[in-house]
Amino acid sequence: MMAAGRFSTRERTHIMFTTGNLVLQLGYALLVAALLARTQRRMRLLVALSAAVMLARAVLLVPDIATIAWMVVLLGAWLVLLWSDRVSELRGRFTAEEEAMRSTFLGALPRSAARQFIDQGLWLRGDAGEVLTREGAPVPNLYYLASGEARVTSQGRPVGVCRAGDLIGEATILSGEPATATVTLNAAASFWCAPTTTLRRFLDDHDGLRAAVERSFAAAVKDKLRAANRTIAGG
């Protein structure tokens, strides 16, 4: 007679592959997948699916009041976060100018994050002859040119032109180095403007956004360098 608490190999195999155990393993697998998810939203969804699987097991297969309570709490927390994200997206509305700005260098950010970034600055108007950055001097602001045009000079020589949709000051805003060129408005223009200190503090507080913003800035700088080389070669 087999001692109590001891099972044969066949019995252990049967227990391992019961419906309850298989469902439990599925719940664990979903948790592992959640840890490997690339986005926060996907991670939360996988955790919620795991909780739903565990809840179904505790209700239908292996009754467990404690598990039911904890899984209900977990699913409730997920629903609260889902609702919070939805509210943030609804609040992330953009004017036509802001939408144009978002679609350029903020396209890689979630709408709510782009909304927060844009809110760090103000929309202003400038007149012809207004200097936005001065070569060799600290860059006080980052600019996004919504309309109008600005000339770019280095050592007194024209090296490029900034037009609607271009960033101004992005080359040195994060490093804190002096401006590499002088940018002067050719005519009346409208632009978004944010202090460099404010943007650095914002990116320090939102480290997850820094990489995406830096990539956008780097791409903008490369485009300007190519345009400047063409201008110099043509001159």
Rank of each mutant, 00 (worst) to 15 (best):
R134I: 09
R134K: 14
R134D: 11
E135Y: 02
E135Q: 08
G136N: 04
G136T: 04
G136S: 07
G136D: 03
G136F: 03
G136C: 05
P138F: 02
V139I: 12
V139N: 10
V139F: 11
V139E: 12
P140S: 01
N141A: 13
L142D: 00
L142C: 08
L142N: 05
L142E: 00
Y143S: 00
Y143E: 02
Y144M: 01
L145G: 08
L145M: 02
L145I: 01
S147Y: 03
S147H: 01
S147V: 00
S147E: 03
G148T: 07
E149S: 11
E149Q: 07
E149T: 10
A150N: 06
R151W: 07
R151N: 10
T153D: 14
T153N: 10
T153R: 11
S154N: 14
S154K: 15
Q155N: 15
Q155Y: 14
Q155L: 14
G156C: 00
G156I: 01
R157L: 15
P158K: 10
P158E: 15
V159M: 10
V159P: 11
V159F: 02
V159D: 06
C162S: 06
R163N: 12
R163Y: 11
R163I: 13
A164S: 10
A164Q: 12
A164K: 08
A164T: 10
L167P: 10
L167N: 12
G169I: 01
E170T: 03
E170V: 04
E170I: 02
